[in-house]
Write a protein that binds this DNA or RNA. Sequence first.
DNA 1: ACTATTATATACTCATGAGTATATTTTATG
DNA 2: CATAAAATATACTCATGAGTATATAATAGT
Lengths: 205, 205
Amino acid sequence: MNTLDSPFRSQKQRLDDREAKRQAVLRAATQMFNERGFHATSLEDVAASLDISKPTIYHYLGNKDQVLLECVSFGLEQLQEAAETARKQPGTGIDRLRSFLQRYAEINMDDFGRCVIRTGDETLSPDSRRRFRSLKRKIDKAMRELIEEGIADGSIACTDAKLLAFTLAGALNWPARWHEAGGKQSAKEVARHMVDVLTQGFAPR
Amino acid sequence: MNTLDSPFRSQKQRLDDREAKRQAVLRAATQMFNERGFHATSLEDVAASLDISKPTIYHYLGNKDQVLLECVSFGLEQLQEAAETARKQPGTGIDRLRSFLQRYAEINMDDFGRCVIRTGDETLSPDSRRRFRSLKRKIDKAMRELIEEGIADGSIACTDAKLLAFTLAGALNWPARWHEAGGKQSAKEVARHMVDVLTQGFAPR
DNA sequence: ACTATTATATACTCATGAGTATATTTTATG
DNA sequence: CATAAAATATACTCATGAGTATATAATAGT
């Protein structure tokens, strides 16, 4: 099998190639959306940043709405994975929840996660919006279930799992707005600290 | 002095009139921005919702950017007031902080406060953005000071006031995205519950 | 009554940017 | 090789919506 740099690529290689280009477009788009906002970013800008032309983007992706949908879907997939990983872990409910929250926060400081947070539902077309919402609801549900498991085993103190989930999500979404990659504290540090604060509360124990 | 409905209004009355109209425009704009998003809302839409024409809006406000800036400024003023009120209150640091947080959350579920949260910095022109950021920084600073006072008097347990402020703000900003006026729980209830959770943490005591 | 000012509307201009028609080149395969 | 398919570009169209020029009615002040 030809793994060297022959000019004749296998079909798989070509498909991978295509996929890599799609990804590159999405990555570039995500970064620009995050910096300037979706509406202030034209696909021409995105194309230019990759030294390609606008129609090339349309060759790989249907339209601007779809570009955005894929960007956020990617972020939401990462979150979904994080939830599944946490679910499988050993330990008490609170341990699993904390481990999820840690990862959740980290993802929200990364390109695609940030995009999820910074994208308002209204930005997407009605169809995409439904998808977007439905994916977000899944994450929310996963978080709620982790909480409920913790309540059940007594490791979490809480009277309203839904509201707790919103509270935690809100706190851990916010860094998507203010944290910047090169900052003093790494995403990991920020996440850890926030999760601790949320766990303990700010009233002395 | 003529306080009845004479057709001859005093200068003050006329100024008030003008101000009332400005306010009406801002209120209508805020609501539409919150629902559809800034970019999906044309000033023509806003005008139509008030049964006036677009140039009338331009008669009262310079341009769309300014409309948005005034909307968010209004929300930020409310938050500023809340901060000042809390500062003046008696009690320990944690009491004053909690009282601020309560009000903070409530405002964020109201038209103008919501607009503050839902408006990304990138949405505004560079000049307005600077104003917007500077006003937000003030609120953040106020929250941080309340926290520091609480740390000083031992009523708040915290090692990083800045990060705690971000954490609390994030959690209490989030309802601007999901809470709706006619929902099951009133803004006040949601706020109270969230503040409690944040105070106590979710680890059993 | 006469003029200036304020409030409002109609009917434009103009830039931007999404999306496309079409041409061209490269790559793959019978 | 010849032809089909994929990749890329140039150069358009076209809708939208911000902002304006201009007209008119109402109100205020002289």
